[in-house]
Design a protein around this nucleic acid. Sequence first.
DNA 1: GTGAAAGCGCTAACAG
DNA 2: CTGTTAGCGCTTTCAC
Lengths: 367, 367
Amino acid sequence: MARSMHVRRPATLASLAAELGVSRTTVSNAYNRPDQLSPELRRRVLETARRLGYPGPDPVARSLRTRKAGAVGLLLTENLSYAFRDPAAIGFLEGLALACEDAGTGLLLVPANPEREDVAAVHRAGVDGFVVYSVPDDDPHLAAVLERPVPTVVCDQPDLGNVDRVGIDDQAAMHSLAQHLISLGHRRVGVVCMRLARDRNDDFVVPERQQAAHFHVQRARLAGLAQAFASVGVDWETVPVAERFDHTMASGASAAAQVMERDPQITALICTSDILALGALGELRRRGLRVPEDITVTGFDGIREAEQAGLTTVRQPVLEKGRAAGKLLLDSAERTRPRAVTLSTELVLGSTAASPRGTAEERWFGP
Amino acid sequence: MARSMHVRRPATLASLAAELGVSRTTVSNAYNRPDQLSPELRRRVLETARRLGYPGPDPVARSLRTRKAGAVGLLLTENLSYAFRDPAAIGFLEGLALACEDAGTGLLLVPANPEREDVAAVHRAGVDGFVVYSVPDDDPHLAAVLERPVPTVVCDQPDLGNVDRVGIDDQAAMHSLAQHLISLGHRRVGVVCMRLARDRNDDFVVPERQQAAHFHVQRARLAGLAQAFASVGVDWETVPVAERFDHTMASGASAAAQVMERDPQITALICTSDILALGALGELRRRGLRVPEDITVTGFDGIREAEQAGLTTVRQPVLEKGRAAGKLLLDSAERTRPRAVTLSTELVLGSTAASPRGTAEERWFGP
DNA sequence: GTGAAAGCGCTAACAG
DNA sequence: CTGTTAGCGCTTTCAC
């Protein structure tokens, strides 16, 4: 039984047909259209197949012939280690996988490491369509996907004009969070955000870079903040915005430290993701600050860990995003023009935001 | 630009060749072997391709010809919702994905819902090999995979004799955990385990069902327990073992309740997974029991949440398991006989296990 | 109910 | 460096 040993495919549909003295059609029918065949003949075919070790029609050959692969590709240009550690990404993946499962479709994770600009994997993927999740808008992998003649839906991506899209209104959501902070009395704030482009910049971000960010989600969230605070007279140029390439709690912590160093007087630290916020929270507490008494901290995403920590944040339906993306793609037969699904978000009022108290100096250096 | 609109594939390699007045080989070479071509001609080919909207060689046709799909399939017969909520499963997935990415190979999640016995998806999967993760040994999907003439590696699965295998020594690991409890003085214990077969049984388990369990991992862990406790004179028949189909904290909680109901005098509740243990922990505390003063609780897996909770458990290298499975599969060119990788585990002494104190009656009903 | 014909779109010798 | 030849293994009208 060396079955598992990379055996040279022994029998083909043709050889089976020959052995049986029937046509290839008949054998094919035995597998694909049982009703086109006498049960008796079918039994004989299947039995002979087993005897000859014929494993059934080759899926690739079938795909070539039928012009469908039975799978959708997922492009995820984040280091996998971060993706699989990010509850939001996992939620998206789960939703997408559920949609695929419902449709009996496979889900192909296309290897697309941001470091290697190897687009070949995109070309090699035998899929009926692509879902693209949160990649920079200038990512070559994305470009490669768009060149493939298959339907595509992008998620957390700017409007590409001719492609289906799923997302939330990041700018509006962040704007409303900002409004909340403003109404609490915060005027002097700091920001921690995720990577804005493909190049690593673990440092402060000038407004130009903010506006030119290649990650739509981050750009929109920053824009929402800038807009809200500008509207109450805050000069956004003066607001320290620290960027971090790696999406980890450690990044959140170091960015928080950097921002506090730059402006100890801020009364709120706004983070563009919960992961970063949780890291920041830890760092601030480690430094002896109380949240929210001494400083307000907010996140974005609404992951479970954030909820447990009582983080003030924006909750977005990540699983639904994945599911919607899958549905959109798998429906794409009967569509005509690009569709867009915008899911709603919810401001979560946790226990990490409050009105500023005392002078900032006091908070930072002690009373 | 109706590029995204499911266009009928306009051009093929052949038509492009015709247009250019060169042979198909030349066009093929332009894509696959740039060095077999004058740069000038190559440029012309690629440019004409763009002009004609030729998206490059069709991946499926290429796969058929080259006999390789550039992807491995992952069979995961758990409800996806549980899989994606189980840190251990996610860790495995991450490790496998990393191995695939290293090799530039895609990872195809094969839709295999335990409820639908639809094996077709396995047949339809265009992959160069399969990884099978923790499915019941009588799963029809598994059988279907084994019939495919591609290399396969199973993980957390009994030895199939002719297939590569990755796993840990579940029995030994659980045995050592049991020894630890025994050395602490525990003799009267209860057990909470995951599903043992494909049928739902949210109830106690008789020893026969334990020994006949179709999930190798669960069977081995229970065997390790039974063996350890039997060796110090405990009659395993009398030990309450509660099974739960769904792998959730809620299941752990309800099973814990059920076991306590059955035998309030147990001094330790042993769970075969951390998820279950965390649920049990919550339930016991909710009932006013202190852990470990009133009762000992243990888990298995070593997930992060368990660590945070200070759970006494067994840590297993889930990420490494995934990576090892991927490596094994992607190496399988140069192999001859089935290989097995057994990774090591580590007993984690947390704060949820201690020597039993007072009488059990007191603990359960109050002093 | 069964078969013959006609590719799906591509790559890989090999010869020129 | 380029072209010719030969399929990879299968499905699908369309006759019989």
